[in-house]
């Protein structure tokens, strides 16, 4: 009897491990009760408008940041490194600067993430609607337009657990 139970456990264990791995999230990333993403329609420094509602069908990482924010300064290069490598395997990155001037944004991005563009929330009101817990804030919006995950504070996105998490976000699939 014991042997039979052991065989069943051994037979099921790879599956159990896989299920567990799927449910594990990197430190500081939390699963939310899904809710519709607040509106987000902003222009970048070139006047190019991005409307979140038009990005349905793919995972979107909405990242709020500001130039005066110390953790943002540390996080942004890691984010830029990951998204420079293989962006096609990752969610769509939508960066939103909160209430800095264009000069500040230009100087900041030029130094820390020269390949990344950002939308400008000039009066900070779009950010307010998202109610971040602080800056930086990273929200993961699923292909149906619902907010599903939140990263608390700045995270080392180029570290393996975070890369794996980002790469696991595919349409029809979630970690």
């Amino acid at each position: 009897m014991k042997r039979l139970l052991l065989s069943i456990v051994l037979f099921l264990s790879p599956g159990l491990v896989a299920v567990q791995a799927e449910n594990e999230l990197p430190t500081g990333v939390i699963r939310l009760k899904p809710y519709p993403a607040p509106p987000l329609r902003l222009a970048d420094m070139d006047g190019q408008v991005t409307d979140l509602s038009r990005l349905r069908g793919q995972w979107v990482l909405v990242h709020f940041w500001a130039g005066w924010c110390v953790p943002c300064r540390r996080e942004l290069p890691a984010l830029a490194r990951v998204f420079k490598d293989r962006p096609e395997r990752l969610p769509r990155l939508v960066m939103v600067n909160t209430a800095d001037t264009e000069d500040e944004v230009f100087a900041f991005l030029g130094k820390l993430a020269p390949d990344q563009a950002t939308l400008l929330d000039k009066d900070g009101q779009v950010t307010e609607r998202w109610k971040p817990r602080g800056l930086p804030a990273s929200y993961f919006v699923d292909p149906e337009g619902r907010v599903r995950y939140l990263a608390l504070g700045g995270r080392p996105w180029d570290h393996p657990p975070y890369r794996r998490f980002l790469e696991a976000l595919k349409p029809g699939k979630a970690p």
């Binding site: 500081g28 939390i30 005066w68 209430a99 009066d123 900070g124 009101q125 307010e128």
Partner: peptide, 28 residues
């Protein structure tokens, strides 16, 4: 005072109430 400065000032303030998850920082 224009909204953008109010927003920035607000973000530099500590929140009145916040639940902190494991490993979560808060500053202000």
């Amino acid at each position: 005072v224009p909204m953008r400065f109010r927003a920035t000032f607000g973000w530099t303030m500590a929140p009145e109430l916040r639940d902190l998850h494991t490993s979560e920082p808060v500053a202000g």
